[in-house]
């Protein structure tokens, strides 16, 4: 069966549900006396979501044209058979995993993604704090799916499904889910880890829908009750201005590239790991984690030594 269905945009369909669920979470948080929402933080997240929607209308058209261009050279015609929907679910999710991992490990991509992590709160409105600049270029990573033979409309549809799925996991209202769910699916617990700045959690759990990719590629860390998540970014921005939220890392890159001593440094400032520098003024997440482990070992060393001696 290769019907050409008119696929809906899942994100647009989900907007009323997003609104209702945020209102519900605000109510639940109030009842539990948890300070889940702060006015300016929420306003900033919603403004980012609205901006993303507006920019997405234009950038999405370019992405769709590019997908169609590549689709002309497809290796197979997978069409809209039921199994195509199953295949694209996993293929798109794997693509998302690597896109997301790149977005944390390469500064150019991080500059577009960092705004999603810039809130020090973690609630459903944080899910709406979406990029304003990523849509201009991040679609290139989905082009191989069109080359394989997935119809562009199906790819765009699945990207929407993934975004809608990831909305509900941005919450502290839900604790742990049954073991089989936590083993296979990306859950609020797994994604809290992803948004946390505690050294043990940095740059972990990149999953979109299925957590299996993190388990497979060695980037999974479970939420530890003894180490409650602290949300935000390593250098929190302290601003609720959407323009500053959207552009601050791009400005930082421009400042670093301008001040760099040579082309090697410029290239590393642009494409290296976020935090990489040449004046010891900041650290990468790997360096932060190594320092944290070293401090932990320094603290535990006497006790270990004592145990070894007895």
């Amino acid at each position: 069966m290769t019907l050409e269905p008119q696929l809906a945009n899942p994100v647009e369909l989900a907007i009323p549900a997003f609104i209702v669920l945020v209102l519900l979470e605000i109510t639940v948080a109030k009842r539990r006396r948890k300070a889940a929402y702060e006015l300016r933080d929420t306003a900033a997240s919603l403004a980012m979501g609205l901006g993303n929607l507006a920019i997405g209308l234009a950038a999405g058209a370019v992405a769709y044209l590019a997908l169609n261009g590549v689709y002309q050279f497809r290796l197979a015609s997978l069409g809209y058979a039921w199994w195509s929907f199953i295949l694209i679910l996993f293929a798109e999710d794997l693509t998302y995993y690597w896109f997301h991992r790149l977005s944390h490990r390469c500064r150019f991509w991080w500059a577009a993604h960092v705004n999603h992590h810039s809130s020090q709160h973690y609630n459903l409105s944080t899910a709406l704090r979406q990029t304003w600049t990523g849509g201009l270029f991040d679609w290139v990573l989905w082009l191989p799916l069109a080359l394989i033979g997935f119809p562009p409309a199906l790819i765009v549809f699945q990207k929407g499904v993934s975004l809608v799925y990831q909305f509900w996991i941005h919450t502290e209202t839900i604790g742990r889910l049954p073991r089989w769910v936590e083993a296979v699916m990306n859950t609020p617990s797994h994604h809290r880890v992803h948004h946390a700045t505690n050294p043990r959690y940095l740059d972990r759990n990149y999953a979109g829908i299925f957590i299996i990719w993190d388990r497979l590629f060695g980037s999974f860390v479970a939420e530890a009750p003894e180490d409650p998540c602290r949300y935000g970014i390593v250098k929190n921005i302290g601003s609720f201005n959407p323009l500053r939220i959207a552009l601050h890392e791009w400005v930082a890159i421009a400042q670093d590239v301008t001040a760099a001593a040579n082309w090697r440094e410029r290239l590393i400032y642009l494409l290296g790991q976020p935090g990489r520098c040449f004046d010891f003024s900041r650290q990468t997440t790997d360096e932060i984690r190594a320092a944290w482990r070293a401090r932990g070992l320094a603290v535990s060393a006497p006790a270990d030594h004592f145990r070894a001696g007895t």
Partner: peptide, 15 residues
Amino acid sequence: GIALILAAVWLTGGA
């Protein structure tokens, strides 16, 4: 939706 959410946050002591 944005107006409703911001009103709810404000009314629940979010400012």
